[in-house]
Computed example of a mutant assay.
Amino acid sequence: MDIVSLVRDTRIQRILSHPEDDSSIWQRALQRLLAADIELTRQSAGESAIAALQRLMIFLGYSTAASGAFLIDGDFGRGTNRGVAQFKYDHGLGGKPDRERLCYPCRWNNARRLIDSIPETSLDQATLQAMLQTAYQRCEQNQVMCGDVELAIFHLNALHKHRFLDCRAILERYGDAALTAARAQQQKGIQIRPEWILSIIRQETAGIIRPRFEQHYLSRLNQRHPDSDLEELRMQSMSLGLGQIMGCNYDAVGAPDARALFSAPVDEQVAFVARFLKPRQAETGKGQPDEADFHRVARFYNGPKYAAHHYHERLARWFREFRLLLG
């Protein structure tokens, strides 16, 4: 299919534009792109056109911010540049960067500063067509976020407008899945109360899936596995799903690969959180946890610096709220 035919697909149109926004602006930019009048680069203007590109990239699972966040801000910055470069590499397109440039040496505390190691690229017709074609194919096969096109667009739109869910809305949307996941673990002799599952979802994503790419993870994985598929390593380098579980932990939660954490149905994503909490069942099996329990779970889930941003305190707050809502 050519670009014009792809853009006429109603699913593609909904991916490219939030329903509250005027889509005519990016459509005019598309016409200029098709006429070879422009290419989108880091020097490009036109927030609407770039925001449409960022929505498409996020739908496909590419980070758009230098921090690694999945962000729709209409700025073709270093993060969006990296995402386009990664897509070109993954799909063997012309002008793709060298693998080593995409996996530049860095640590967590300097990855953002060193992102200019990735050369500047552009969104040309061939790349746009490949992106649109990939999105179309994944829609056809339901190989999208949550394994469902409608849900994928729901999360994309909510992320675009920063419309996250409170505890009551999370319970309404994911409560049954949390109860099912808790019962499934209980049948295996593992105690994970649903309040803990829901509290992690509230803390990590507020019920709206927003992956995060970690450049230093990718650089490290590439050094260890230089011949492995780079797209899979990239997925392993992202925190994914409702529980923001790092892709490299896919085996621990019973997923076949890291991409499955991105495309798994919602009920399975909730189950992933329950399975990931298994090592902390001494705490998560409690209906009346004490302060030390919240510290232990926070450290396990968020790392040794959890207290710096009061992760344990917010986890305790969400737990109390869900316990009240569940009755």
Rank of each mutant, 00 (worst) to 15 (best):
S48N: 13
L325W: 04
K188T: 11
Q54R: 03
R210E: 10
L53M: 08
A274W: 08
H160F: 11
H225V: 10
N110R: 10
M238Q: 12
F154V: 15
G95M: 05
P256V: 13
V84G: 02
R168A: 10
H216M: 09
F213T: 04
Q13Y: 08
W318F: 14
S5W: 00
V4F: 07
F59A: 01
D176E: 15
H18Q: 06
F154E: 15
A298K: 02
R220H: 12
Q43W: 08
E39Q: 13
G327A: 05
R11K: 12
L30H: 06
E283Q: 13
L198Y: 03
F276S: 02
S17W: 07
L102Y: 06
A35Q: 09
Q236C: 11
A282G: 01
D229M: 03
I38W: 06
Q203I: 00
S237R: 00
R323P: 00
G243T: 03
I245M: 01
R113K: 15
G303Y: 00
I209T: 11
F154P: 03
L326Q: 05
R42K: 12
L30A: 04
Y62D: 09
F70A: 04
Q31E: 15
E172V: 01
D251N: 15
I25R: 14
I209Y: 06
L179I: 13
F70Y: 14
R112W: 12
P211A: 05
A274T: 07
L218Q: 03
R220D: 12
W108M: 15
Q191K: 14
H216D: 11
Q185I: 04
Q187W: 10
E283R: 08
A45N: 14
H160E: 11
S24P: 08
H216P: 04
L315I: 06
R320W: 05
H225W: 12
L179Q: 15
Q31W: 05
I3T: 09
L102K: 02
Q288P: 02
N110V: 07
M57T: 09
L233Q: 06
Q269I: 00
L240E: 08
E321N: 00
I72V: 15
A184D: 15
A29N: 10
Q31F: 08
E268L: 14
L156P: 04
D229Y: 04
G74V: 11
Q223A: 11
E313P: 00
D22V: 12
Q125L: 12
A126Y: 03
Q141R: 14
D227S: 12
L102A: 00
Q31D: 14
L261R: 09
S122H: 11
E231T: 13
A264Y: 02
Y217M: 10
S239H: 06
I201P: 07
R210N: 13
R8Q: 14
R32Q: 14
G92I: 08
D75H: 15
L198T: 03
A206F: 05
A181F: 09
L156G: 03
P194C: 01
F154I: 14
T64C: 06
